[in-house]
Every structure is written in structure tokens, then in C-alpha cells.
Simulated assay, not measured.
Amino acid sequence: MTQRNPILVRTTWAACLLGSLALVAIASGAETDADPVEPVRVVPDAASAAQAFISLLDEDARGKTLYALADEERFDWHFVPRTRNGLPLRDMTGEQRSAAYDLLQSALSSQGYLKASAVIELERILGLLEGRPERRDPENYYVTIFGEPSTDEPWAWRFEGHHVSFNFASPSGQLTVTGPAFLGANPARVPSGPKAGWRPLGREEDLARALVLSFTADQREQATIAAEAPSDIVTGNDRRARLDAFEGLPADAMTEAQRAILYDIVHEYVGNTTTDFEWMMRIQTEIPASDIYFAWAGPTEPGAGHYYRIHAPVFLIEYDNTQNDANHVHSVWRDLENDFGGDALARHYEESDHH
């Protein structure tokens, strides 16, 4: 029997969600008394935002931005500082850049957009801390579009640079798929200057530590998969995320209060995009607590290198903070069925007569 998750009786994530949806509705000109589920279907807004962005590009910029949907470039994602294919912010006019931000906002929640903006701002801070501001470029973030943006035909797009990689696929006008969705932070805690103490990804760490510290000795022993944390997220930038086995402590072996924290962690990740309502409903009604595992590696003391993951048959969350004396975070959300559109895109082709 599927165990009811305690999130059924928790309303904080839903309240935050409805607030975000109201903002989206107002921004898009939608009626504020509409069914609150409808704004989650962001494809029309994303498609029109992408079309508006493309309309501002000259021939050279279009050549950098636009790829066929079937192009292998769509799967070449990464989170390290490198040259990418696409149109970087630094090569955009002010009007084009504004349209690029509109496109990003069409698919991210207000929380996700603020986090992405903060991670980009960290590039500037990191350059100052390193004494090499020319090496860290907050305008070295790229927009790449695959296929023709449409409300009823499949297409995809990506926003990516150092420590940010959001990959979106729209198999049809009724569904937007997000993944991989990566955010990193270096420094994880700004050590000095006007933003000293700033932690853009602090809740991802604090919630997980609160959970592991709430465990009994037996629970912590089962949850701990290694005494030392790995040097990075285990699945890296793999095209398809795979782990050999489910490890750690299953959610049905936790108390109700512990499961509540676990689902708060999950929502901290899925809450970055406008698909969070569907995901949290799916988790609370379809995924048994026995199928969701929490695993921890490394010490539990703040400031020590640590790693955790939340692994279920249909999703994976990884978080690692070991580099730069445990002041450098990598975190990722993977949809194990629909990264890059995955099964959803395949189903669209199978079910569409004209394909």
C-alpha cells in the first residue's frame, strides 16, 4: 500500500506555489481568479517568449542560437566554465538580453529565477576574491534553442553557463519537462565584502543537515553511505543519470516529522521551476515513501565536506559541497524518465499522427 506522505498536511509549499503562480498570472496578463493549476502549463508563455527573443536576432545571432531539435548538441550540457554553443549574454543587445531573461522567467518560479540570478552574481564575486575578475564573466551565459518554439509542436531550449544549467523540453502544448536542472555556488558562503555571509543555496544544505541530525543512531548508520564525501556529484554531466542501486534510509523508515523535512528538501529543488505543483502532487499521491531514499556521505558538522542525495525511481537529487574547503556547492535535479524530454518526447512522436 502506498504510504501517505506527511506533505499532505503541510501547506507551506502550496502557499508559496500559489503566490508564485499569482505572480506568473499577473505578469502574463492572465485572470487572477483562473484555475491555479493552469499557469503551471508554461509552454504557451515560454513559446511566445522564445519567439519574441528570436524575432530580435539578426542572421548571425540566429546561426549561433538555433539548432534542430534532433541535434546532439541538445545533450551536451555541463556546469563548468567553458565556451558553449549558443548566444551568450555578452553578445546580446540590451533588448535581446531583456527578452532572454523573459524566456528564463517563463519557465522558472520566482525562487528559481532569484537563485539563478544569485549564482550568476557569484561569478563577479568569485573574480574579485580570486583577484582575476577578467576570468569570471557574469555575461558568459548562453541561450540555445532547439526546434521551432511552438504551443503544439515539440521544441526545447537551454540556459547555461558556469554553475547554471537549465534544460527545458516541450513535447506538446500541455507539458513542459525540466531537466537536468543544475545550480552551483562558489563561494557557497561569501567570506568577505559587502555580501559577507551570503548563501544563495543555503537552504539546500541546512534542510539536509537538519534531517540527518534528527536521525537516531541506527537511522544515521543506515543513511550514511560513506565516511568521506565524494569530490563531486556522482552522476556528473552524464546524458542519462544512472546509479547502481538505491542506498541510504527509505522515507518509510523515518518519523512523520523527518519525512516532512525530506519533502521540504525535495520541494526546494522542484520549487525552482513552474512544474513544482505537478511534482509535489505526484510525490504525495503516487510514489510510496518506501521508494524514496535519503543518503548522506561525510561528517555532519558545518564546514566539513559533505554530500547527500535523494533517490527515487523517477527522480534524483544530488548535492555536494567538498571543493574549496567545503565552500563550493554543486547540486542537481534529474528527471530519470524525462530529462531532455525523454519519454515524454518519445510518447509525443508515437501518439502524433503527423510524425
Rank of each mutant, 00 (worst) to 15 (best):
I7W: 10
I7R: 09
C16T: 10
L23N: 09
A27W: 06
A30L: 13
A30F: 14
A30W: 15
E31F: 06
D35P: 07
P36N: 03
V42C: 00
P44C: 09
P44N: 04
A46V: 04
A50S: 15
I54E: 05
E59I: 10
D60E: 13
R62M: 14
G63A: 14
T65S: 03
Y67F: 14
E73C: 05
W77T: 08
V80F: 13
P81N: 13
R82T: 13
N85V: 12
G86Q: 00
L87C: 11
T93V: 15
Q96L: 08
Q96H: 11
L104Q: 03
S106N: 05
S109C: 06
K115V: 11
K115E: 15
E121Q: 14
L122I: 07
I125Q: 02
G127S: 06
L129T: 04
E130L: 12
P133M: 12
E139S: 13
Y141V: 02
Y142H: 12
D152Y: 14
A156Q: 04
F159H: 02
F159N: 10
P171N: 01
G173F: 01
T176R: 06
A188W: 03
S192G: 10
G193K: 01
K195H: 01
L201P: 02
L207Q: 08
L211C: 04
S214I: 10
T216L: 05
D218N: 12
D218H: 13
E221F: 04
T224I: 01
A226G: 10
A229D: 00
V234T: 14
R239A: 14
R239H: 03
L243V: 12
M254A: 05
M254I: 01
Q258I: 05
R259I: 01
L262F: 04
Y263P: 03
N272L: 12
T274L: 12
T275Q: 15
D276K: 02
D276I: 07
E278H: 14
E278R: 14
R282F: 04
S290Q: 09
D291Y: 07
D291V: 10
P299M: 03
H311V: 10
L316T: 00
I317E: 05
Y319P: 00
S331F: 03
D335R: 00
E337L: 11
G342P: 04
A344K: 09
A344V: 01
R347Q: 08
S352T: 14
